[in-house]
Every structure is written in structure tokens, then in C-alpha cells.
């Protein structure tokens, strides 16, 4: 049993991000071809949980809004403490009062990715304030060597990966990737980063990969910084879509990492259903105080 009483809930404020660019509009793909990146942060309207990671010709597009904080230390803390499944509430602007839920996080620019219902998304604007009831870091299971992080205790417990009395996580996953596919994010602290999968097409035998899917990465120890370790497994949620950049690709926010003896991966490459928008938003609603 995980003991949610050990975790603390802290309201932390973030600001909805703008789309940003440097003075050079182009990025360079792995073939050396220039392109103008779209969807990399800010407010992305036409991308939903359940859509394919290859649905858009975009760069790191994520459903919902990307939220950060202008003070770098506050941004790091906001990202580190925010966990998948945390409830978020809009505090300013036309969408004031609307509830959302944390889907995941992204490194580099220190961003929390937050989902809202489509009608709410139309009302949200850059710089709107969003308060996140951050909770989940510190969650642990004293029976297991694996570490649990980046996920709210309510969501983790509702996923019921482990039967009481057993020392095994049974995880439904879309598929598994070898650690060599992990690009940007490798070597970074997992409370602050996702990891990009360097894939530019679907793996053989996998019908599609959706935002919200749960995937496993083999030979990766992500308890602290993510890095190669033979016989270790890391599990996460797909939180953003593909990228043309070399070393980048669809992003996974990892929430569980441990020795492979503690895992049974229930792979369903055709029909896997991971986290859905309705499940996550219902969870958020249930957490409203």
C-alpha cells in the first residue's frame, strides 16, 4: 500500500505560457532541412489526449496549456512539485474558476502541461494565472525497491498497478522502448524533465501511440537522473507529440522506476488505452476542495 498521508499538498501558481521564438525563426531537422516550429509551448487548441503522437506537423506539441513562472527558481519548484493528476484552477481571465488537471511536465523551459475541457481552452490566454494543488512527490511503497514520483497519490492508487500483498507492479503499456531511444532528457533530474523518444515512425507491430498512453523504457534507471542501467525499467505517460529535431521526439513523463523483477508489463500495441482526458478531468473534479 502506498501511504498518501505522507505527502504534502502545496498550492503553487503558474502562468500560461506564450508561444516563443528567438530572432531566428527556423529550426533544423535531422536531415538539415529548416522548418518553423509550431506547437512548442503556449496554448495548443487542436490536440487532445488520445491523438496520435504523429497527428500534427508540429514540434513537441502538447495538448492543453504549458504553464511556468517568470522567476526561474519558482519555475523549477513549480515543475518539480507538480505531479500527473494534480488539480489546477484558472485564477484570472475569461476562464476564471475552470478546473484542469496536470498531464505531465517538460524540461528545458520548466513547463507543467495542463489539460482543460475544449470549451475552457478557447477562453484561456497567455499570462492567465493557474493555481496547481501540487502533491505526489514523496510518495513511496515501502515494500518495493522501485521509486514512485511525478504522480499524484490519488491517481497512482486509482491505477491499481499492485495487488496488496504482492511485490509486483502489473502495468498496462502500449509498448516498450529500449533505452537507446531516449534522447533529450537523458542525464537530467526526473522531477524536472520528461524524456524524448527518438522515434520518427511507429515501431513495427504498434498500431499507433497516443498522447496519454503508458509506455515502458527498458534498461533505464530514472529514480534520480535518468541513465542507462541494465535490468531496470522506467514507466511513464506520453505527454507531447513528435519533433523533427535530431535527439528529440515524443515526450514521456516518467512516474515509476525500478528493477525489472518488480514489473510485469502488460503490452497491448493495438488496443492499449492509457490515461484519458475524461478520466483525468473526473479525477481532478473529485479532488476539488
Amino acid at each position: 500500500m502506498t501511504e498518501s498521508r505522507t505527502t504534502v499538498t502545496v498550492n503553487a501558481l503558474g502562468y500560461v505560457g506564450h508561444s516563443e521564438s528567438s530572432g531566428e525563426p527556423f529550426r533544423i531537422d535531422r536531415h538539415g532541412v529548416t522548418y518553423v516550429p509550431t506547437g512548442d509551448g503556449g496554448i495548443v487548441l487542436n490536440y487532445r489526449v488520445g491523438d496520435s503522437i504523429f497527428a500534427l506537423d508540429a514540434d513537441h506539441a502538447s495538448p492543453g496549456v504549458s504553464v511556468s513562472h517568470p522567476n526561474p527558481d519558482a519555475a523549477h519548484s513549480l515543475v518539480a512539485q507538480s505531479c500527473i493528476g494534480n488539480i489546477a484552477q484558472v485564477r484570472t481571465g475569461a476562464a476564471t474558476g475552470a478546473l484542469g488537471v496536470v498531464l505531465g511536465k517538460r524540461g528545458e523551459g520548466s513547463r507543467v502541461l495542463i489539460l482543460f475541457a475544449p470549451g475552457v481552452m478557447e477562453l484561456i490566454r497567455p499570462d492567465d494565472q493557474i493555481s496547481i494543488a501540487t502533491e505526489g512527490q514523496g510518495l513511496s511503497d515501502s515494500d518495493m525497491e522501485s521509486h514512485i514520483f511525478n504522480i499524484s497519490s490519488t491517481l497512482f492508487n486509482s491505477l491499481s498497478f499492485k495487488k496488496s500483498g504482492e511485490k509486483l507492479f502489473r502495468i498496462p503499456v502500449r509498448t516498450s522502448f529500449e533505452s537507446k531511444y531516449v534522447g533529450n532528457g537523458i542525464g537530467r533530474p526526473m522531477p524536472l524533465w520528461d524524456v524524448d523518444l527518438q522515434i520518427y515512425e511507429l515501431p513495427s507491430g504498434v498500431s499507433d501511440i497516443h498522447i496519454g498512453d503508458i509506455v515502458a523504457i527498458t534498461n533505464l534507471d530514472a529514480r534520480f537522473n535518468a541513465g542507462y542501467r541494465n535490468g531496470w525499467i522506467s514507466v511513464g505517460v506520453v505527454v507531447h507529440g513528435s519533433s523533427p529535431q535530431p535527439g528529440h521526439g515524443p515526450g514521456v513523463t516518467i512516474f515509476l522506476s525500478g528493477p525489472e523483477s518488480e514489473f510485469e508489463l502488460l503490452s497491448d500495441p493495438q488496443n492499449h488505452v492509457g490515461l484519458t482526458e475524461s478520466r483525468l478531468l473526473a479525477l481532478a473534479a473529485s479532488l476539488k476542495r
Binding site: S179, N184, I186, G187, Q198, G227, P246, G247, H248
Partner: peptide, 19 residues
């Protein structure tokens, strides 16, 4: 499998850490 931090960055700057 050894390629660590530096993946995804430009290759005219810094280097590729090996695990």
C-alpha cells in the same frame, strides 16, 4: 545505449556524455 546528456543538442557546442 551509452549516449547520455548532450543528446538533442547542437553538435558544434559542448559534447556527448557517455554512460
Amino acid at each position: 545505449e551509452a549516449i547520455g546528456a548532450g543528446s538533442g543538442m547542437v553538435s558544434e557546442y559542448a559534447n556527448t556524455d557517455l554512460m
